[in-house]
Design a protein around this nucleic acid. Structure first.
Lengths: 193, 193, 193, 193
DNA sequence: GATGAATGAGTTTTCATTCAT
DNA sequence: GATGAATGAAAACTCATTCAT
């Protein structure tokens, strides 16, 4: 129980204030326990962080895997759009996970650089495959104009990354959603014609 | 002299390791001076950081302003593409500025949240105007199909943000450039047809 | 069972790393038990230490008492030499006891100073008596020249102490044995002539 | 100033209570300074300890070197006896140095084992040379009976070690001196005849 | 007999900051 | 301009100890 609460609070605080900006005492306090209690469950700060990090990555990868499921009955356009929406939903429903993953993907603490790069590459490959499949489907459907798949995948991934970034710095949801829809419309337009 | 060295080193270290992860002693050491010397030039850590931050924002805004200059003789397509290239160049030529700006735009230390939001909004408005002008030019040229300007601007900004993100997490320049070109091609394709 | 294992491990670790340098958790771990288990058998760290200490002293005193036994059939010279040899054997066969006793005789933790002094005095008196008896026997035999017994006893005790010290800081057994034999030969030479 | 006071107090406390039994806060308090001040002069606890250790060894080796000086005009017997006396004086005049050296020669903290062994070997060689010279002198004088020098040296070193040990555990000076004199008399007796 | 969970007290260490020089 | 010396505050971590189970 305490162990899990520690993980949750740690994820949130590490995500919000960074590794160095988060004191174990803060985490402990929010959980309602004294600092040394942390050491009963985790070896040290780094261990707590790594545990949280691994879980966040697993959760995030799970999300990516789920993107490819349940899309069989949809056409390519709806499926691709749905990915953007799901990404948005994921950010909204799991703000802690999202912030944490984004932060440490872009700015890993020095002791994590290598691990992060591997973890990120893994997610990237996973995601690329999902997009690829949908692009191919679209071409087969005849909705996407026949052209290089790589080309279409790259552009969609850029779209996703752009949306990710904008989600975190545009405060207003409406604004974000407008931009998202516009960007996707433009993408689809380019993909078809 | 020392004052400027301090700023440079501080920008780099704050960008790489974060505000809390950077000790004043580290900055001082790299500059070749003892820690208390910092207090001769700056009130305290926050002051040093803010000074660096302001300069970084000014420099970044300068870059954005320059985007609109010297583009008179180019057509809209080349101008837009040139913006992406210049962004890339800016990141490559000023890695410390770039990393710093990205980091604190996405993850400002708590005492900076509001200031950052304002500063960012300012840059955003600036950039939007530049893009808008080029889009209008393109429509007038007849290269861009007549349609909502906002729509085209949003999509281009998304493209810029996506490229920003990818620059920082894709290690290889080649890969980054391929993705950038593909994404722009798709954008232009969508804009025209 | 566990209680005894705790004692053994505690003796070894206290001997090797000192009272403050030995954590109860280490002792517990080596025994294969969790730390709180120690409190089932011993009141606290001090109690565990004292128990170990008392046993070590008893064991050591037993050794001293045994020195006087089974020597009836030997002449004085052989008996005295045998004491040195036995001391050596004791150190070799009971390295943990020896180290522990030596350490806390010379450097008792503050809460033990008085107890230790008494315990030590007791052993000293015991040992002195044993030596005295053998010296007297030697004089009666006529092998030791007639002279002050105290004088001969003091010199022999010094020999014993010197050997003790050297045992613990000379790494090589050969070297130690050579030195021991030479020192005893010199003693006997002085005692006879 | 503070730096030296720290060294002095550290030597005394480390000698009395051991490395693990001595808190930096105690040392700081006795010096009249707050704990972090220590870190201005020494890297960490180990560094402070090592600094003290090196100085103690140098001082001790100096003492050993001085043993050989100014003895030219004395005969061998007086010179040897003087060594015992000087050892005694050294212990009395420099109780902190003596206790410290003895403690860490016999019970070095784990991180010091190797360093200590080397340092000790060095002192041992130094001392052996001094004694050897005097023994040879004694034989040349004709006061010491002609016999193996090694034999005489070993016995004298044993005498020194025994005296060292006894100094630290016999509380009374008188008792210690009686024992010392008796042991030396016996040694000389054996050496001559 | 023994453990899981937790804590209070204390340790070493870091760091921003101050101030006299 | 810059440093040596020092500190207050807080950090991470350790450890003996407790207690319910």
């Amino acid at each position: 129980m305490t162990k899990n609460k520690l993980k949750e609070v740690a994820m949130r605080l590490f995500g919000e204030k960074g590794y160095d900006g988060t004191a174990l005492s803060e985490i402990a306090k929010e959980v309602g326990v004294k600092t040394p209690a942390i050491y009963f469950f985790y070896e040290n700060k780094e261990d707590l962080f790594m545990t949280v990090f691994k879980e966040a990555m697993e959760f995030y990868n799970l999300f990516i895997q789920e993107l490819s499921e349940d899309q069989a009955e949809l056409n390519a356009k709806d499926s691709l759009y749905r990915i953007l929406i799901r990404q948005h939903h994921f950010y909204q429903k799991n703000p802690e996970y999202s912030l944490f993953v984004l932060r440490y993907m872009l700015f890993p603490p020095s002791f994590l650089k290598e691990t992060i790069e591997k973890a990120f590459l893994h997610s990237d490959v996973l995601l690329t495959k999902v997009i690829e499949a949908l692009i191919v489907q679209g071409i087969q459907e005849g909705t996407i104009r026949e052209q290089s798949v790589e080309f279409l995948v790259d552009a969609f991934l850029n779209l996703l990354d752009g949306s990710c970034m904008q989600y975190f710095y545009y405060p207003s949801t409406e604004l974000y959603e407008r931009k998202l829809n516009n960007a996707f419309a433009m993408y689809w337009n380019g993909a078809c014609s």
